[in-house]
Simulated scan of single mutants.
Amino acid sequence: MFLFGRNVAQGARLRALRALYRSFNEQNGPEARARRLLREWLSPEQRAQFDVNGFFEVTGSLTGRRYRIHQGTMSNVLELDEKLEPKVGWCFLPERALAVGDVMLAQKIALETDEAAVLAIAKSFSPRLPFVPRAMRRAPQI
């Protein structure tokens, strides 16, 4: 009976240690650090917009167009029209894989400092059409 009690206590300690590790990693892992860095670079208005909506808006350095950067790494930048409605979607990202916050920060800096170079390499897409995987586009067989 005594050995059983000790194993239960060891199991509880192990679960607590795993929970502590998960908590530490969530607060200090690459995604959390990238998100903190992004928030530091956002203006107070952008930060508030990001907290409420999950996106923030930037102004292009060359044309003065407004862009909305949504949380994500691909196809997450939308060019806005005069009514702040999505007009064109733009897909551009760093050459290597980065945390989501780092990609969004790179997109923000690129649009605000060298909009022309960004648009020269970016791929456009329609922001109004939902993405449907190719396998799902076929009509169902009856």
Rank of each mutant, 00 (worst) to 15 (best):
residue 83 K to F: 09
residue 38 L to T: 07
residue 37 L to D: 14
residue 34 A to T: 12
residue 53 N to P: 05
residue 7 N to A: 14
residue 60 G to T: 00
residue 138 R to V: 00
residue 7 N to E: 14
residue 46 Q to F: 10
residue 87 K to D: 13
residue 110 A to F: 06
residue 6 R to T: 09
residue 44 P to Q: 05
residue 2 F to G: 14
residue 68 R to E: 13
residue 19 A to V: 00
residue 54 G to P: 12
residue 84 L to N: 12
residue 103 V to M: 07
residue 23 S to N: 07
residue 68 R to S: 13
residue 60 G to V: 01
residue 53 N to Y: 15
residue 51 D to W: 03
residue 133 P to H: 00
residue 23 S to T: 07
residue 26 E to P: 05
residue 42 L to F: 09
residue 58 V to T: 05
residue 129 L to N: 07
residue 92 F to H: 01
residue 31 E to G: 06
residue 140 P to Y: 01
residue 74 M to P: 00
residue 25 N to V: 07
residue 47 R to N: 11
residue 60 G to R: 00
residue 108 K to I: 00
residue 65 R to G: 05
residue 132 V to C: 08
residue 75 S to K: 15
residue 141 Q to L: 06
residue 80 L to H: 04
residue 48 A to H: 10
residue 64 G to F: 06
residue 142 I to A: 04
residue 99 A to Q: 12
residue 88 V to G: 01
residue 138 R to M: 00
residue 15 R to Y: 04
residue 113 T to Q: 08
residue 77 V to A: 13
residue 25 N to D: 13
residue 115 E to H: 03
residue 87 K to P: 02
residue 18 R to K: 07
residue 91 C to I: 03
residue 71 Q to T: 15
residue 80 L to V: 06
residue 78 L to T: 03
residue 12 A to I: 12
residue 33 R to K: 15
residue 113 T to N: 05
residue 109 I to W: 06
residue 100 V to K: 06
residue 5 G to V: 11
residue 9 A to R: 13
residue 137 R to C: 03
residue 22 R to C: 04
residue 8 V to H: 14
residue 28 N to K: 01
residue 90 W to G: 08
residue 97 A to W: 11
residue 24 F to K: 04
residue 14 L to N: 08
residue 87 K to I: 06
residue 47 R to H: 08
residue 136 M to C: 08
residue 52 V to P: 01
residue 112 E to F: 01
residue 4 F to H: 13
residue 5 G to Y: 13
residue 89 G to A: 05
residue 82 E to A: 14
residue 5 G to C: 14
residue 73 T to V: 10
residue 38 L to C: 11
residue 116 A to V: 08
residue 17 L to W: 07
residue 105 L to Y: 09
residue 85 E to Y: 12
residue 133 P to Q: 00
residue 65 R to V: 05
residue 119 L to K: 02
residue 28 N to I: 01
residue 72 G to S: 02
residue 72 G to I: 01
residue 70 H to V: 06
residue 76 N to M: 00
residue 89 G to F: 02
residue 121 I to P: 05
residue 34 A to H: 14
residue 76 N to W: 01
residue 125 F to D: 03
residue 127 P to F: 07
residue 119 L to D: 02
residue 124 S to A: 11
residue 70 H to K: 09
